[in-house]
Amino acid sequence: MADKKYIVGIFDDEDDVMHAIGNIRGNGVKIHEVFTPYPVHGLDLALGYDRPRMGVAAFLFGITGTSLAFLLTFWTLGVDWPMNIGGKNFFPFPTNIPIVFELTVLLAAYGMSFTFFFMEGLGPTVKPVIFDPRSTDDKFVMAIDLGKNKSSEGDITELLKGNGATEVNIKEI
């Protein structure tokens, strides 16, 4: 992989970083990503990301669960081996609601979570690129890819410092 050079700005407070994002993007500088120790609300929108749509995955997996559970109970008790239980219907719908509900929830929860792991590239063998290890502790870390920006290293450093970054480092990957 070709060496990439990043400028890493370190901020001490969520309000500083939020404020800086607006100014930096306003100056036409593209931000690679901002790493925070906890979810900062509105950060994704400030960076111009779309709203997450994990609900779509949950819905699709959920509806798959509903259908599979329905098929399972209907086929086993209604088609494959119908049993006469107290002279009732072979497939009484209300008594199948618990199973259908549980399998819907199970598939929706697991399907969505594994979609999330997949989309984020998360897994036990993943070696993450960590711009600054303090970003999981108490710092708000902004990474700017030099190769994707026209501004010079010095300009971006100045811009970061002028917008409240307490530290600016260079990181090559």
Binding site: E33, V34, F35, T36, P37, Y38, P39, V40, L43, D44, L47, Y49, R51, P52, R53, M54, G55, A58, V105, A108, A109, M112, S113, F116, F117, M119, E120, G121, L122, G123, P124, V126, K127, P128, V129, I130, S135, T136
Partner: peptide
């Protein structure tokens, strides 16, 4: 920790996942 880095995109999706899991739970 599955290679978690805490990027803004990850957190946004993570929050979405947590909320939906809460709604399912």
């Amino acid at each position: 920790s599955l290679g978690w880095t805490g990027g803004a995109k990850s957190w946004a999706r993570y929050e979405d996942v947590s909320l939906i899991l809460a709604g399912l739970s």
